[in-house]
């Protein structure tokens, strides 16, 4: 296990490694960060064993560094994710994902009668519980929690 991780991390010269992604949410993370639309080299490993998550995934992106507000967007699906910032094959910084106070876009409001589900509007939520990641819609004021959260 340690060897695999070591191998994955050291395989890029400069860039970002995102570790501790729940394996089932790997493709959501890819889509939220727009990794399916960039030119950089992206590699990932999935269904790796993890004590914490059961099965985890790792993504590494060459030559790309994220702003905090961008990386925090994945908090909705991968709140435990950890980032390693790589420069010249060395980890120069470690970061954790922080659940932001407000979420714009990304998630859908659970309420079918919400205006955001009936007209083209970017969703907005305030995060009322950062630990359980519970969202309150800015428009209809209804609660969307992890169990019924849908990522756009």
């Amino acid at each position: 296990m340690k060897d695999i991780k070591h191998l994955v991390v050291s395989a890029i010269k400069d860039g970002t490694v995102i570790d501790h992604i729940p394996a089932k949410d790997l493709f959501k993370v890819i889509s939220i960060l727009g990794l399916d639309r960039i030119e950089n080299q992206v590699t990932f490993g999935s269904n790796l064993d993890s004590k914490k998550l059961g099965k985890k995934a790792i993504i590494k992106i060459s030559g790309l560094f994220f702003r905090n507000e961008d990386i925090n967007k994945i908090a909705l699906v991968a709140p435990e994710a950890k980032l390693n910032i790589i420069k010249d094959y060395n980890v120069i910084e470690k970061k954790v994902v922080e659940v932001p106070d407000n979420i714009t876009g990304i998630a859908k409001c659970v309420n079918p009668k919400c205006i955001t589900n009936n007209e083209e509007i970017v969703t907005k939520f305030s995060v009322v519980d950062k630990k359980k990641v519970i969202l309150k819609c800015y428009y209809c004021e209804k609660i969307t929690d992890q169990d019924n959260m849908r990522i756009i």
Binding site: I115, C137, Y138, Y139, C140, E141
Partner: peptide
Amino acid sequence: PLEGSARFASEVSTVPVINAGDGAN
């Protein structure tokens, strides 16, 4: 009839909006 419609209207509008009922909200 849709919930959140008044909040949305208040964002789009250049004049103030009074909500006289947005669904069950």
